Amino acid sequence: MRPSPHEFPELSMSTPSTGRVAVITGASSGIGAATARALAAKGYRVALLARRVERIEALAAELGDGAIAIAADVTDRDSLVAAAARVADELGGADVLVNNAGIMLLGPFIPEQREDFTRMVEVNLLGAITATEVFLGQLRDGGGDLVNISSVAGRTARPGNSVYAATKWGLGGWSESLRQELQPDIRVMVIEPGAVATELPTHITHAQTREGVTAAYDTVPVTAEDVAEVIAFAVERPKHLTLNEILLRPTNQAL
């Protein structure tokens, strides 16, 4: 069992040189991959979880010793349980869980979009809840950090993002309840990016919406690396301090 920072005051500051372990869902691209690189650069060992195995295997090879790739789908609890077992066996357990896996299937609220609505709830909200439930015991062991990647859509809804916004508003409410329930053993942090230049818009199935969003995102100056830097900063704060909620947007984003 890892020592608790409450038992050893000298551990009250985060110490990446000791090789804290970060588990990152949706690590195959975008903010997830960038966060893996940012934390690995600070001495973290990282478990890369995603469905696209070739991508996370390539990233693990790039990051070198201390990085492992694990095929996992956040909508499949059994795959997460198997992933948690590997993290425990190979890395000693998770100190940080970054719930990054998510999809942004924007479009009008019409029956034809029903499959997209269901998928967003399953991945964005239930996926984060399930991953946290599975890794909760490891995070409790020694005091850990839970980082939930939300969105500005968790604060501001607009036409065409109703169900996506619902998942992010839900993520915020769940995170706040967990913050109160789990403190001080586990720090709960919510990161709420605005538009970020990633592949998310390319997954939108509604053609007209995809064209509009893709065109808008092509001009976005904020990168996945920018967000990853914020995440790394947050988990590196002294243990007596938690950055519970961080909202970040491109400077020229209106909403």
Score class of each variant (00 low, 15 high):
Gly66Ala: 02
Gly66Arg: 00
Ala67Trp: 04
Ala67Ile: 05
Ile70Thr: 05
Ala71Asp: 00
Ala72Asn: 03
Asp73Leu: 08
Asp76Asn: 09
Arg77Val: 15
Asp78Gly: 03
Ser79Cys: 05
Leu80Glu: 02
Leu80Ile: 12
Leu80Tyr: 06
Ala82Ile: 07
Ala83Asn: 04
Ala85Arg: 11
Ala85Asn: 11
Arg86Val: 14
Arg86Asn: 01
Val87Met: 06
Ala88Trp: 01
Asp89Ser: 09
Asp89Asn: 07
Asp89Leu: 05
Glu90Cys: 00
Glu90Val: 01
Gly92Pro: 00
Ala94Tyr: 04
Asp95Gly: 11
Leu97Asn: 04
Leu97Gln: 04
Val98Trp: 03
Asn99Thr: 01
Asn99Gly: 05
Asn99Val: 04
Asn100Ala: 12
Ala101His: 01
Gly102Asp: 09
Gly102Pro: 01
Ile103Trp: 00
Ile103Leu: 15
Leu105Thr: 12
Gly107Trp: 03
Gly107Ser: 14
Phe109Trp: 03
Phe109Asn: 06
Phe109Gly: 03
Ile110Thr: 15
Pro111Met: 15
Pro111Phe: 07
Glu112Trp: 01
Gln113Ile: 03
Arg114Leu: 10
Arg114Ile: 12
Arg114Tyr: 09
Glu115Ala: 15
Glu115Tyr: 05
Asp116Gly: 15
Phe117Trp: 15
Phe117His: 13
Thr118Ile: 12
Arg119Val: 09
Met120Tyr: 02
Val123His: 01
Val123Asn: 01
Val123Gln: 02
Leu125Gly: 06
Leu126Val: 10
Ala128Phe: 03
Ala128Arg: 02
Ile129Pro: 00
Thr130Phe: 07
Thr130Lys: 03
Thr130Asp: 07
Thr132Ile: 11
Thr132Asn: 09
Glu133Leu: 06
Val134Trp: 14
Gln138Trp: 09
Leu139Glu: 12
Arg140Gly: 13
Asp141Arg: 13
Asp141Met: 10
Gly142Cys: 06
Gly142Ala: 10
Gly143Val: 05
Val147Tyr: 05
Val147Ser: 06
Val147Arg: 05
Asn148His: 08
Asn148Gln: 08
Ile149Gln: 01
Ser151Ala: 07
Arg155Leu: 13
Arg155Asn: 03
Arg155Thr: 11
Arg155His: 15
Ala157Pro: 11
Arg158Thr: 13
Arg158Pro: 00
Ser162Trp: 00
Ala165Phe: 10
Ala166Thr: 14
Ala166Pro: 06
Trp169Met: 13
Trp169Gln: 09
Leu171Phe: 04
Gly172Pro: 00
Gly173Asn: 08
Trp174Asp: 03
Trp174Phe: 12
Glu176Trp: 13
Ser177His: 08
Leu178Ala: 05
Gln180Tyr: 10
Gln180Phe: 10
Glu181Met: 11
Glu181Ile: 14
Glu181Asn: 06
Gln183Pro: 00
Pro184Asp: 14
Ile186Ser: 11
Val188Glu: 01
Val190Ala: 07
Val190His: 03
Val190Gln: 07
Ile191Ala: 02
Pro193Arg: 08
Gly194Ala: 14
Ala195His: 08
Ala195Asn: 09
Val196Asn: 04
Val196Gln: 04
Val196Asp: 01
Val196Trp: 04
Leu200Met: 13
Leu200Gln: 14
Pro201Asn: 08
